[in-house]
Design a protein around this nucleic acid. Structure first.
Lengths: 597, 597
DNA sequence: ATGTTGGCAATGTGCCGACAA
DNA sequence: TTGTCGGCACATTGCCAACAT
């Protein structure tokens, strides 16, 4: 099936080679997710400076002269080495690719990637026991620990002595940086379940995890436990000014690349698989293959993409235009030259521009078959002359075969609940290089980005909204100048028996009352921000930080709360609130709806 | 006295000019301390690339070719502008100096700095009401607020209505970045005293203040309150890899400077007054003046320096050698070419190398008068030929006059307790430029670094060691597998009536017991780290984080604690401990002495 | 005059089983 | 099977006056 089984052993041997960077290979891929794969050393790729510039942003590009560095639209490169990294602050995975420009003639036509050095360092030969769980509100609450799915615990953790009343052990897991995290793993409760207690909270705090994020446990061949995270949203950068995070110092900028291209020297690319802008390096065969099927306006296609829970989907759409994305700086570029309209409910990407090598023609030819459409010009108007001759547009659709679908079926593996242990192979590895022919015999060449790595299922449900509806009722006591808390005696809380205080609640634009959040550690700026009424101004609620409170300064703690409603003394109030437990949640998702009486 | 009084008005006018950078002028200088002054725009200075390279460290210098950039030993420069800044992370003050190289001929010989643009933007014309207090253990404890010295509160804060039982108000103060901090200022207690309560703790936390650091309040002309800090020690950089903190991106490196020198263009220097390496820019007159008195081996001298509490001292010493500091890369440089031996108890600097312009000859000629000593060679052996002709060594000491002492007397101002309000003038400003003649009439030219700014006294005492001696005595209970706290019942605490638990204490290398710190918020890494015995291994104490504890993982929390001593069940223990309040203290200063029974 | 301490109240943290989805 | 909750114990925070220096 295009994959030489003989290579597996070699790969396992070469996997011992310590050239993959500081980060554990399996863990890196587990964190990167199923749709990420990397080329091997020695492999040939196509590099698109335009896409790179897009990722870097204008800040790092330093446009010169004609508006861009004088670099080609695409560059054929050999992969000199690949090193895996993880951001020190956020644990975000990325890779350093060392590339060296080659002329297309240097690329061998056989399937070996043209290098004796090619190895499998980019892929674990065998995925270890692992599981991934999306964190619930309970998992991230300061009130408790982490509930481990039973089969996950049995699969990944050392066995417990279930004869004991409360079997427990200490787990030690290393994260991407090699830092050790220790957890008490206990099997208790009625019914019994696996829990991580002591140590868990510190981990959540340090990694700034919120509900919706996912953790990943992975047991290596040696029994060593590894631990990774996959965030639901980007962690906000708290660094006050732009630090060149993933690109060490000022390497990796376009200027450096331009220089390297002309001197034919090695240059480094920071490849950030999860930011959605890193598709500027693709396998050579994929680039070549994209010429094999015709592309025309009105053509239907499908494309693989990743949905929010990191699972894969297939989106379909219609090509509505072909033309330069940036006619001034990158004229004639095929980078995102296709303008598409996604089918209903298939909002694969906010951006409706994609590159030709991202799509496959749809087997079911819908839309307007037989309609001959000219490509649009740089200004997105039909003008065939602007498209280079090497780009076969308007070829009548013929026997295109969905090889990738075939290979997907071949590589289909167990995607059972959340744990598995199956050997896999990188699709980048030893893939025959395609020659630009339709219907070439590339049965083994799947889409590396999607099937190259084992899919790790996440818990399917979106984390629940955690809207325990409680009703607070009470009277606002007049402010008398004594700095004692007036809240607690003035409030009657329904729904909780004890230990409930106003600071447990988050409110949003409450007509007659506003209470800043004290719920979430990740929210607090000044930590202590309990509220007290101040009626010196009759129609405005004012209160402040501090135990015994004084004024509201505003609601900087929660960006959603942005207005303070007028307040009346002795007016009763009532509102819906969050569950009072200490919940770490994503910002902006923390506000209860207000029920105005 | 060399200062043109006419200029004062002009200065006040020009002080309104918004060209001093983002930071409040008065506050910047207050934070920088008394021994820091800056040149004005238009002023002429001498820049020493060697000293700059020293500050930047090899990392940023990028030595090329012969080992250094091909830059001169010193460069005469005009100050194009000066901008005041404060580090976003640490609040450390620094300045951006924009310099432009000039030839010495361009420097006017009159006293005007050669520029019509010179102004006093570097100096507040009048120091506002201010005070500075070194934080005590109580001030930084989480247990309480900030005790404001009475005269300070009366001087800087709006008056309170003392007729009330507990007069209070809200203070709003802006820090160096313009961020507002709010504090409740209350006058209470028996006897009455001024306190900052609500809001103070948040400030201490955010700024990571520890006892020994100082805060500074400053009331502007407009009544606006400003707030700064001066740390006792450097705040440890928590950034995981070297970020170019004060020099934005890669400006300010020697490469950039070298380029600017040859193109005669403006270059920026980050001038960091408190790191002890920023004396590589000095006033031109000072450089010139240093030729006016002879320097010889065996000569006694004095030098102004700053002691730990930011007050000024005068150190004396003996010149023991003259020679290149770095004969390979900077041959013939006068930068720190003097080797000195400090007098007893006068350890002005660990470094015993200083530059000629830093010293003044000592009026009292001690040591070996009349002894003719040849300067030492590059290898610090006597060899007169290695010293350039423009450097007048071995001139017999004659009528040198200590002008700077005169000017100090002139500029002497009130240095009363901790608050004052006196107009001052920058010594950089409109200082006549000295021609290289001994006994020139430079009566107004003081030592800018020391008298240029009002000294702000700090509390004189070093913050007390906070060693309340308590004796804990108890029995280590055997571990029985139930994860309940075993500490509290097993311990009998003498000296405190209530709310004392073992986690309040810090121990150090205790023979039979070790308890990690939970005392200091700034210490904690995992926050919850209470200890419990684990006697599964009989001779080793193990405990861990978490409320109900399990194992000691080691003592990563406090670097001083680095060994865990063996532990025996049922063995009684006893040790001296810190005061149990939550004290934020500098690292490594937090350990109690152990009394082994 | 002001640093330190005990008293005290409020609140946060974290382990546990109960309960329910 | 596992997410959420009440119960509970205890730790931390922060305002206050008493006391000491």
């Amino acid at each position: 099936m295009g994959i030489d089984l003989n290579t597996v052993e070699e790969e396992e041997e070469e996997a011992k080679e310590e050239d993959a960077g500081p980060v554990c290979l399996e863990l890196w891929h587990a964190c990167a997710g199923p749709s990420v794969s990397l080329p091997n050393k020695g492999y040939f790729v196509v590099y698109f400076p335009q896409g790179h510039a897009e990722q870097l942003g204008d800040f790092y590009c330093g446009d010169v002269g004609n508006g861009r560095f004088d670099v080609p639209l695409h560059v054929f490169c050999r992969v000199v080495h690949v090193r895996l990294h993880a951001d020190v602050e956020t644990d975000e995975v990325y890779a350093q690719l060392a590339l060296m420009a080659v002329s297309e003639e240097e690329i061998p036509k056989d399937g070996d990637g043209g290098s004796d050095e090619s190895d499998s360092e980019r892929r674990p030969a065998r995925m270890p026991h692992m599981f991934c769980k999306t964190l619930t509100a309970s998992d991230t609450s300061t009130h408790g620990g982490f509930s481990v799915p039973r089969r996950a615990a049995e699969d990944c953790f050392p066995p417990l002595d279930y004869k004991l009343q409360r079997p427990s052990q200490e787990l030690v897991a290393k994260d991407l940086h090699g830092t050790e995290w220790r957890f008490r793993h206990i099997y208790r409760g009625q019914p019994r379940r696996h829990l991580l207690t002591t140590g868990w909270s510190a981990f959540v705090n340090k990694k700034k995890l919120v509900s919706g994020d996912a953790v990943l446990f992975l047991r290596g061949e040696d029994g060593e436990l590894r631990l990774g995270i996959r965030r639901a949203g980007q962690l906000k950068d708290t660094t006050p000014f732009p630090v060149l995070h993933n690109q060490s110092s000022n390497h990796g900028t376009l200027a450096t690349v331009a220089h390297a291209l002309y001197t034919k020297s090695v240059f480094n690319i920071s490849y950030n698989p999860r930011d959605g802008h890193s598709s500027f390096i693709i396998p050579y065969w994929k680039f070549v293959k994209s010429f094999s099927h015709p592309i025309s306006i009105g053509m239907r296609f499908k494309m693989r993409c990743e949905s929010e829970d990191a699972s894969e989907r297939r989106c379909t759409g219609l090509i509505t235009g072909i033309g330069d994305m940036d006619p001034l700086r990158w004229p004639g570029s095929k980078w995102r030259c296709l303008l598409v309209r996604w089918d209903e409910g298939e909002e694969c990407r906010k951006n409706s521009r994609i590159s030709p090598w991202e799509i496959e023609p749809n087997n079911v030819v819908a839309g307007s078959p037989g309609l001959t459409v000219s490509p649009i010009s740089k200004r997105l108007k039909p003008n065939p002359s602007t498209v280079g001759p090497e780009f076969p547009v308007c070829t009548s659709g013929n026997g295109y075969q969905d090889y990738s679908e075939t290979s997907r079926r071949f590589q289909k593996v167990l995607q059972g609940q959340e744990y598995f242990s199956v050997g896999i192979k990188s699709s980048w590895d030893r893939i025959p290089v395609a020659t630009p022919q339709p219907q070439s015999q590339l049965l083994g060449a799947g889409f590396p980005e999607s099937v190259g790595f084992q899919k790790v299922l996440q818990g399917q449900e979106i984390h629940p909204c955690y809207h325990t509806t409680l009703t607070l009722a009470g009277t606002i006591a007049p402010y008398n100048g004594a700095y004692r808390s007036r809240w607690t005696p003035a409030l009657q809380v329904q729904g909780y028996a004890n230990q409930v205080s106003p600071s447990h609640f988050v409110s949003r634009a409450i007509p007659n009352l506003a209470i800043p959040s004290r719920v979430n550690r990740n929210f607090v700026s000044g930590r202590k921000d309990q509220v007290e009424m101040n009626t010196t101004s009759k129609n405005k609620l004012e209160s402040s930080g501090g135990r015994d409170g004084c004024r509201i300064f505003g609601f900087s703690l929660n960006p959603v709360i942005d207005e303070v409603a007028p307040c009346q003394v002795d007016k009763e109030f009532e509102f819906e609130a969050l569950n009072p437990r200490s919940i770490r949640k994503p910002l902006g998702n923390n506000c209860a709806t207000v029920k105005c009486p």
